[in-house]
């Protein structure tokens, strides 16, 4: 799995790392059940703080894309649905960014999402 971060970008480094995993899952270069590199190792590879990597991993866990277990590290959730879920999350984040640009409040965006579900 390829990780790339640009410190000059306005996107936080942790989010950039999370985006790499999402992208890898979506394009098939990371498989469901695959183990991600240890946070300390990845931090050393990229020359960033361990906590930055952990922030990215934590975000992926909240999105239901990886599991974090003590001793076992970070593992992509098993199951064939993981790549599609990664794509969905990526699209949602895009939509959220667009909503922010339009000046929508959080409530308005959530309400909009709820209406599109109905």
């Amino acid at each position: 799995m390829l990780f790339r971060v640009d410190p000059a970008s306005s996107v936080p480094l942790g989010d950039q790392i999370a985006a790499c995993v999402r992208g890898a899952l979506a394009d098939g270069s990371a498989a469901p059940g695959e183990r991600l590199p240890a946070a300390r190792e990845l931090a050393d590879s990229l020359g960033v703080n361990v906590h930055t990597v952990l922030r990215g991993y934590q975000r992926l866990r909240e999105e239901g894309l990886i599991e974090l277990r003590r001793g076992r590290g970070a593992v992509v959730v098993p199951g064939a649905a993981a790549p599609d879920r990664a794509r969905l999350v990526a699209r949602l984040r895009e939509a959220a960014a667009q909503a922010r640009e339009l000046g929508l409040t959080e409530e308005e965006f959530v309400e909009l999402a709820r209406t599109s579900l109905a």
């Binding site: 990780f3 790339r4 971060v5 640009d6 000059a8 991600l36 990845l42 590879s45 990229l46 960033v48």
Partner: peptide, 9 residues
């Protein structure tokens, strides 16, 4: 300025 790493088990 971009940093990159590749890792695979």
């Amino acid at each position: 300025g971009e940093a990159a790493g590749w890792s695979r088990a």
